[in-house]
Design a protein around this nucleic acid. Structure first.
Lengths: 178, 178
DNA sequence: ATCCGCATGTAACAGGTTACATGATTCA
DNA sequence: TGAATCATGTAACCTGTTACATGCGGAT
């Protein structure tokens, strides 16, 4: 169900767009919080059009269909955000691995954590670069600030995991050396 | 695939257990990082037994089957942790909602964030209580420390989201008041 | 006797991924 | 004319959730 609302949100902000556009918008915006492939997006758009949440505004070359959000679509998005109790249960493979770490030898666990810290550090750098880019564009696009809150959250989360991995590696190595 | 390794991990630490036991262990340990219902666990255990990762060690009353991890199972768990590149992409409905927040009126967005902050604060308190409980038991169980790292990560993540929600609500209210 | 908790399972469905499949347009 | 990119779709499969279904054993 979330995919549907992510698409409505993108259409709200970017204006009319095709499935192809939306697939790329997905990648370049909420990618770190939600993912969707074109094989999931195209059927969903067809269902949404059937439900009256969006309309085909224009048909272009190569079978391109440009969708626009309808009033009903905007109402549904709003209702989803305001009325629906969000599912706060998340599934985090990194945390699961952390849970299983004590089944390994200390030096192995520490090495894994160092690698994790590095990977998350890299992701963090990516998001920070995106953040700076947005800040620079702030004056030109008024929509550039869209997703700012989410990006901030993403950055904080990456930082949290990276620091945890570092500190835990330190702690494990510290106690196994003694 | 992750479920399989979560189960192998639980069997490693808690020793032989039934599907019923594992369902409850799941709930009381990794629940905040990974979830699984009995309807998913039972079929998976059967597949794992067929694959030789676990064996039925004992059959008790009421059709109870007690599973134990095999050497092959332990090898596979180790290989999964060490050799497999973890999937670092996660799906976070909270972050998605954050992304969509700018489609609402500022006061509505702020109210939602306040509710989020409260909900995550409550989850944080839960995990902190669990953490303290573990610390108290530390001397009695040697396995009590299992999952300590993951719990620490969970606590940090909850704190990150709660603080982000609070500060973002403040920021939105601050700028819309002017 | 009756109720609660133990104990295991299956079926239908929803959401997602990977791979397969096709064809039009643009640009060099 | 060949390659890259635009553009849309479908099918098979895996994972996970909800709901349905059944029966034993122990405690009061």
């Amino acid at each position: 169900m979330s995919l549907r609302f992510a698409l409505l949100g993108l259409l709200t902000v970017s204006g009319p767009a095709s499935g192809y556009d939306l697939t790329k918008l997905f990648e370049s915006s909420i990618n770190y919080a939600w993912q969707a492939r074109h094989s999931q997006i195209y059927p969903e758009l067809n269902k949404m059009a059937a439900d009256g949440l969006i309309t085909v505004e224009e048909e272009g070359p190569r079978g391109r269909k440009t969708y626009a959000i309808t009033e009903e679509g905007a109402r549904e998005l709003r209702a989803w955000l305001i009325e629906r109790e969000p599912s706060r249960s998340f599934r985090d493979e990194g945390a699961l691995r952390a849970f299983l770490l004590p089944t390994l030898e200390p030096h192995e666990a520490a090495a894994l954590l160092r690698a994790e810290a590095e990977a998350y550090g890299a992701k963090l750098a990516e998001l920070e670069a995106l953040h700076d880019l947005r800040a620079a564009q702030q004056t030109s696009h008024e929509n550039a600030q869209f997703g700012k809150y989410a990006l901030d959250l993403g950055i904080r989360q990456m930082r949290t995991i990276r620091d945890w991995a570092r500190e835990t590696a330190d702690r494990i190595e510290g106690s196994s050396r003694s």
